[in-house]
């Protein structure tokens, strides 16, 4: 039982990493809290479903087109709306939350509700880890997460756009003095964040069904992990996902599933009280103020 709990806690943590890494990346680079993040996740899932079931595209093509479409929506969101309110944190939150609400509730209005809205698993198989059965889709999620985090690390350390991302993330004014177009980089950051939400949806959604309410859950998970880890810190997201992922799974197994959400929320409260900028947060001014 313990091994099974550990294995599924690791998988749960990886799912949390996948769900939050895009939200955190966008915030880390451009300082924008994209509250439409969960809606983009669901948009991508429904888009893949429609391209697959209604248009008849092959699954990989449908998924790829959905990821590109979601990334494009992220870019358009920045160019047409967020660019005008950039730097006004409350306006950014209201604007993105409004866009998210509109997307999610539009799907509900169109009647996209029911168990028939689901995506097929990539490989219908399962494997034994020790004495624990794990289905192939969950292993694919773990593998995708490792590859994704690795690729992101290489991207921000070894490409000129990635270095520009880091430059803007650390200090926009300094980056501007090197000839970097901060609006272009912010567009890319929101777009890349949206694409990561879409990639997460592509690999995670086949574990269950697509529902509008999941959009809100994904946003809450992304916020929780980012707050605990420290907004903008990729290392923080990974550590926080492990903390929350293990806490959730162990609570689920040994205490009771109705306590799972309470443990997650208590973790957020505890971190906010002890270290308001999160475990690896860089916003020292928060602590200095308090």
């Amino acid at each position: 039982m313990l091994l099974g709990t550990i294995v599924y806690a690791i998988i749960n943590s990886v799912i949390l990493i996948m769900m939050s890494i895009g939200f955190n990346l966008t915030f880390g680079i451009s300082g924008i809290s994209n509250f439409a993040y969960g809606a983009l996740y669901i948009f991508s899932a429904f888009s893949t479903y429609m391209l697959l079931q209604m248009v008849g595209l092959p699954y990989p093509v449908a998924a790829l087109v959905s990821i590109v479409l979601t990334a494009a929506i992220g870019a358009l969101m920045y160019r047409f709306i967020l660019m005008r309110v950039r730097g006004q944190v409350l306006s950014e939150v209201i604007a993105t939350f409004g866009i998210g609400l509109a997307i999610l509730e539009f799907f509900r209005y169109l009647g996209f509700v029911g168990v028939e809205y689901a995506l097929p698993v990539f490989i219908d198989d399962s494997f034994m880890i020790g004495e624990v059965y794990v289905d192939a889709q969950r292993l694919i999620i773990v593998a995708s997460s490792v590859v994704l985090v690795g690729l992101l690390w290489l991207f921000v350390h070894y490409t000129s756009v990635g270095l520009a991302f880091r430059g803007i993330a650390q200090d926009e004014r300094t980056a501007l003095t090197f000839g970097m177009d901060s609006d272009w980089i912010a567009t890319l950051s929101v777009s890349l964040g949206a694409a990561l939400a879409a990639i997460a949806a592509t690999v995670i959604i086949p574990l269950g069904t697509i529902s509008v309410s999941q959009g809100y859950d994904v946003l809450i998970n992304a916020l929780a992990v980012s707050i605990i880890g420290g907004l903008g810190s990729t290392g923080g997201v990974i550590v926080a996902s492990l903390v929350v992922g293990f806490a959730q799974r162990f609570t689920d197994t040994y205490i009771g599933s109705h306590w799972t959400m309470i443990v997650s929320l208590a973790a957020i409260l505890l971190v906010l009280v002890i270290k308001p900028s999160g475990l690896y947060g860089k916003q020292k001014e928060l602590e200095e103020r308090i």
């Binding site: 004014r173 300094t174 501007l176 003095t177 090197f178 000839g179 970097m180 177009d181 901060s182």
Partner: peptide, 15 residues
């Protein structure tokens, strides 16, 4: 002109 374009044209600055 936005600062990034001015830098690209050849005016650099420190703060």
């Amino acid at each position: 002109m936005p600062p990034y374009k001015i830098v690209r044209l050849g005016i650099a600055r420190t703060f």
